[in-house]
Design a protein around this nucleic acid. Structure first.
Lengths: 196, 196
DNA sequence: CCTTGACATGTCGAGACTGACAGGACAAAT
DNA sequence: ATTTGTCCTGTCAGTCTCGACATGTCAAGG
């Protein structure tokens, strides 16, 4: 007899695989394309290295969720999502609960900023700010360059990209505020409470 | 001879350990406290389960970065960060490059929203919106309840919490915009391009 | 008395993820 | 001719992370 009281696990992370299924639902792409595209768009909410992408593509082919539609120069393999793959995406959205948790190391570090002297903390925030400006610029470039109107897939992606834009704009506004607080001595002993 | 051309790795993730070092730098806390606190504050940028926290506390004690300062009822163990632990935090901030990547599964899903019919996509966004409102409310409660003025540690945490507040406010504004786009047929074949 | 539920600490196996390693194809420049 | 650089696919060891499992304490209420 199987002890059914023990069988309580239904968790299905596998975010990467669903990201890939989405990206391969439009134009066929290679693992190399995907790795680069991840950097620029989906990578803003779910980063992935090629070392993780290639094995996953293999599994997806084995399960019939994508197929290799062509082979280009230098062994370049082009994949595309099958109808079964699209079904898998639909099931994923419908059946599994979203994971609303956020992981952001760069912000975790701000918690610890009090261990640095004020001037060093300010320099730290300045470096972060520059990074955020880069991200914002990159997203705005993407918004300007890609043909979003093409199909529902691209227009759907445009929705998320728009969040990216607002996200980095908010980050920059926030970090300016934070720098102002630090400048006024918040991180020093007996310093003032941050004010909104 | 060691082939130095191969020694190129310096990566130090270990975010959790530094999160714990920060949290234990003020009032002594137990693993149980930390697990609960993670949910409410640091967990907004770096979630952690107790099953990961307890072993990490053991390692930190072994390395002398925290010490057990007291034992309460029910075997409750109270830890506090040592001066060496604070040094480790400072070194972390100074020597290791921040990881600016964001992981957010709930937003990854929005990429794929086009596989659902418009009405179902709208219901999906509505559920997300409710979730974001919950998070925002929780953060605003935390802002109102905690004594942020106490010390630099708490005031530093207040900086990050403030970002959480703005983050969820931005999410809600964005999702209202996204729902409006979906309502106007963006995810249907031949639908309009999202407009800002 | 005994059940229920919150408090509290811990382990474990499996899967996710990373950086490093490895190697081949093709184009352009030297 | 050969070097350099980008393109392109892949593997692997080690770490991180999670859900499930396991165990025990204490207080309150029935």
């Amino acid at each position: 007899m199987i002890d059914m009281s023990r069988v309580t696990c239904y968790i299905v992370p596998m975010s990467l695989r669903h990201g890939l299924l989405d990206l391969l639902a439009g134009e066929p792409q290679s693992g190399y394309d995907l790795a680069r595209f991840f950097e620029a768009s989906m990578g803003n909410v779910w980063p992935a290295q090629h070392s993780q992408i290639y094995p996953e593509l293999g599994k997806l082919v084995a399960e019939g969720l994508i197929t290799q539609v062509d082979e280009g120069p230098r062994g370049r393999k082009l994949y595309q999502t099958t109808p079964e793959g699209i079904d898998a995406l639909r099931t994923w959205l419908r059946e599994s609960p979203p994971d609303y948790s956020v992981r952001y190391e760069a912000l975790l570090r701000i918690f610890t900023l009090w261990v640095l002297p004020t001037d060093e903390a300010l320099a730290y925030l300045e470096r972060d700010r520059a990074e955020y400006r880069r991200h914002l610029a990159q997203i705005e470039t993407a918004i300007g360059e890609v043909e979003w109107s093409k199909n529902p897939i691209n227009r759907g992606a445009r929705l998320t990209i728009e969040f990216g834009r607002r996200f980095y704009a908010t980050l920059i506004e926030w970090i300016d505020w934070a720098a102002e607080q630090v400048r006024s001595g918040t991180l020093e002993p007996g310093g003032p409470l941050p004010t909104i």
